[in-house]
Structure formats: structure tokens, C-alpha cells
Simulated scan of single mutants.
Amino acid sequence: MTPPLGGKQRLPMERLVRLVAALHQAGRNGMATTSLIEIAGFEGNEAVDQLGRDFRYLRELGWQIDNVAGEGLEGVFRMVTVDNRLALRLTTEQQAALLRAVLLASRDDLVERLGLPKSERPAEVVTAVPVADDAALTTVTEAIRAGRLLRFRYNGTDRVVHPESVRTQNGKWYLRGHEDGLEVIKSFVVSRMSDVEADPTTPSVRLETSEHQGLHPMSWQVDPPIDVVLRTTGDYAPDVRRWLGTPNDEKVHGDDVDLTYTVTNRGALRSRIYELGPRVTVVGPDEIREEIISELAEMAGE
């Protein structure tokens, strides 16, 4: 779909520029669908479809944008800049000859740059941008796609995990899932996982509580509801509302603002608190503070 021309096209074009810039910055790691939706400013149940329409338009312009994870909100998109100037300057016969030369030279980087379809790539030509920087992430993403149980060692303990999704944040990949026999969704740093293998015979099971109807992760019914009080300043309060939504209660104490949220997805709360960093302080309850401290200690390998 080609967006219409005219003055009204300024905002859509700015949105496309933001998406391209974000994907370029993410590089090999890619970017989660939920993050891209926030960058685009889409809202509501049609957000995923709207993002897909923008990506289709960008692909028509010559950008190669691939989904390397799950469907819908579980997707992770990675962009390869395709040099479509060659397509404009070369005839069809010249393009075909160039592609043959690239394949004979096993130049996988040029295969990516030229946007050669996967169906035309021989098996011995390896993509210049792999699915993962290491074998662990490749195994994890394949297990999610196939719906298979994951076995790995993490922080000195053997784990058996039902994978839910993967996401990238601050240059690191995280696996989201629940350990076999438990009903608590956890996040695992993929680079700290060892001896990773997908069980070829045992399918994974998604927790019913992890399914969600709303678009914003903070609305997902994953955990029993609990009221959490966050403290910020008047200058940063808009940032907190943008990441967490509208609070149930708001109290001003001088320069500080206390925002109360009823939380049903603790994992989403923690990830957003990490994004906000020193702009926000967790006032209570203590169990939420302890969960955050424990997870940060685990990420630090302590």
C-alpha cells in the first residue's frame, strides 16, 4: 500500500522514519513488536495490523524487514538495508549475472544487501545477519516457533522451561517462560544460558494466565492483583504514565508525586521500572521491592 501524497502525509512519513531509525539502531538484535508499536504511536486492537501495513510499504521501497520470532505481539523484527540502487541501475540480465557471481563467491553479505529471496538461496550460503549471535538464541527461537520444551543450565542450576517469547533490551536477549511444574513467568538472560537444547518430543505448554486480551502488557492478567506505589518527580510523572498507563491514585508531596497502580503483570512492571531507571522509586509493597532486587541480582550473576 502506497501512502497518499499531500500535506497530510507528514505525520505518516515521520512515523516511518522513526520505525526505520529504531530498527537500524537495534541492528542484529532486532526489536520487539510491542516496542515498535509504542514508537509508532499505534493504539488499540488494530495496532499489530497497522504496523504490518507500514512494514509492507517499507518493503516496497526496498527495505528488508524480517520477523525472527513469534506472531502478533510476540514478534521480533530485524531490518537489513537492501541496496536498491543496483536494481535501478542494472538491467534484468545484469542483475541475474551479478546474483550468480555472488552465489559462486559465497558472498553471503552481498546476498543480504541485494535482497535475494530465501527461496533462491542455496543452502551453503549463510545469511550475513544470523538469527542469533550464538547457538543458544538460535535454539531458543526455534523452540518457541516449534512449541518445544527447553532444557538449559542457568546460574548453576539445571532448568526445564516452557518458553513463551523472546525480547531484546539494552543489547541483551531475554527468554520469557515458566519452569516446568511452576506457574510463575520468569525472564532469563539468553547469553547466560548454557547447554541449551530443545526437547524434540515434549511440547511446551503456555500458561492460560499468560494469555492476554489487551494490547498494553500492564493490563495482562498474569499475576494476582496487587497495589504498587511508585514515587517520581513532577517533571518525570508524564514518563511514568506513558510507560505504565493511568494510575489508580495520584498524590503530590511537594516536588514528588506518588502514583498507585493495580498490577496484574509483575514482569511487565519490572521491565518498565528498569526502563525508567532513576526517574522512579518503588515505595511499596516490600514484596515487589524484593522481587526487583532479586531479579537484578540474578541478572548480575550474584
Rank of each mutant, 00 (worst) to 15 (best):
181 G>T: 06
176 R>M: 12
152 F>I: 10
162 H>A: 10
95 Q>V: 14
109 D>H: 08
94 Q>S: 14
151 R>A: 04
122 P>M: 02
126 V>E: 10
96 A>Q: 15
131 V>H: 12
144 I>A: 00
112 E>D: 15
136 A>G: 07
135 A>G: 08
123 A>H: 03
119 S>F: 01
161 V>R: 09
159 R>A: 05
88 L>D: 10
157 T>P: 02
106 S>T: 11
163 P>A: 15
130 P>K: 02
100 R>D: 15
135 A>K: 13
106 S>C: 03
156 G>Y: 12
168 T>F: 10
132 A>T: 01
153 R>F: 00
105 A>C: 00
183 E>M: 00
90 L>M: 15
102 V>E: 03
146 A>N: 06
102 V>A: 04
184 V>I: 11
175 L>M: 09
137 L>C: 01
135 A>F: 08
124 E>V: 10
182 L>T: 08
163 P>F: 15
93 E>R: 12
168 T>E: 11
155 N>Y: 08
101 A>E: 08
105 A>R: 05
120 E>Y: 09
158 D>W: 06
128 A>G: 15
181 G>F: 10
123 A>N: 02
136 A>P: 02
138 T>K: 14
130 P>D: 02
152 F>M: 09
144 I>P: 01
112 E>Q: 03
155 N>G: 07
166 V>K: 01
135 A>M: 07
143 A>M: 03
132 A>S: 13
143 A>I: 07
123 A>R: 06
88 L>I: 02
132 A>M: 01
112 E>F: 04
102 V>P: 09
96 A>H: 10
115 G>I: 03
156 G>K: 12
151 R>T: 05
96 A>E: 15
182 L>W: 00
119 S>K: 00
158 D>A: 15
90 L>D: 03
179 E>W: 05
159 R>D: 02
101 A>K: 12
131 V>S: 14
126 V>H: 09
117 P>W: 07
139 T>P: 00
135 A>H: 12
154 Y>I: 11
110 L>D: 06
111 V>H: 06
